[in-house]
Simulated scan of single mutants.
Amino acid sequence: MYQAAAISELAPSLAYLLPDTRYFEMDSKRAGTRFSAWITPPANYDEDQTKAYPVVYQVDGNLFFPATAPFHQALPRDGISPIRPFILVSISYAAQESQDWQWLRVRDLVPPGEPVPEAMYQALEYSEQAGLVTAEKAERYRAMFAAPAADKFLAFIEEELHPALAGIFRIDEAEAGLWGDSYGGLFAVYAAINRSKLFKRIGAGSPGIIDGSQIFCAYREAVASRNDYSGRRLHVTLASLELTQPTIYQSIVARGTAALLAETTLRPLPGLQVSTEIIPLETHLTAGVPAWFSFLRACYGMVPAA
Rank of each mutant, 00 (worst) to 15 (best):
Q49K: 09
R84H: 08
L234P: 04
E158F: 02
T276R: 15
T244S: 15
Y121Q: 08
A6W: 11
P85M: 03
E136H: 05
L109R: 09
I210P: 03
T283V: 06
P70N: 11
P304T: 09
A306Q: 13
L261T: 04
V133M: 11
I171C: 01
Y190P: 00
Q3Y: 05
Y141L: 13
G256N: 09
M1T: 11
A191F: 08
L10N: 12
W292R: 02
E114D: 13
A138P: 05
G271D: 12
V274M: 12
Y190L: 02
I202Y: 02
A291R: 06
A138I: 09
E125K: 13
K137C: 10
F24M: 14
E221G: 00
G61C: 15
Q73Y: 01
V289G: 10
P54M: 04
E139R: 12
L243I: 08
S251Q: 12
L132E: 15
A291I: 06
E160G: 02
D151L: 15
R195C: 02
E282S: 04
V253W: 07
S230C: 04
A95E: 14
I80L: 10
Q129P: 03
A135N: 12
P41Q: 13
P85F: 03
R220N: 05
K137M: 13
S230H: 07
T33C: 05
E25Y: 12
Y219K: 02
E242W: 12
A4L: 14
V253S: 07
Q273G: 00
T134C: 10
C217Y: 14
L285Y: 14
M120D: 10
E136P: 01
D100I: 00
P304K: 08
T247M: 07
S251E: 13
A43T: 02
Y219M: 05
E9P: 00
Q96G: 01
V59Q: 13
W103M: 11
R297Q: 14
P268T: 11
I215L: 05
V189G: 01
P12L: 10
N227P: 02
P42N: 14
Q214C: 10
E139Q: 15
K152I: 03
D20A: 08
K200T: 08
P70E: 12
L14I: 08
L124A: 08
D172V: 06
S127C: 09
I202H: 04
V56I: 07
G167F: 05
Q129V: 02
F156I: 01
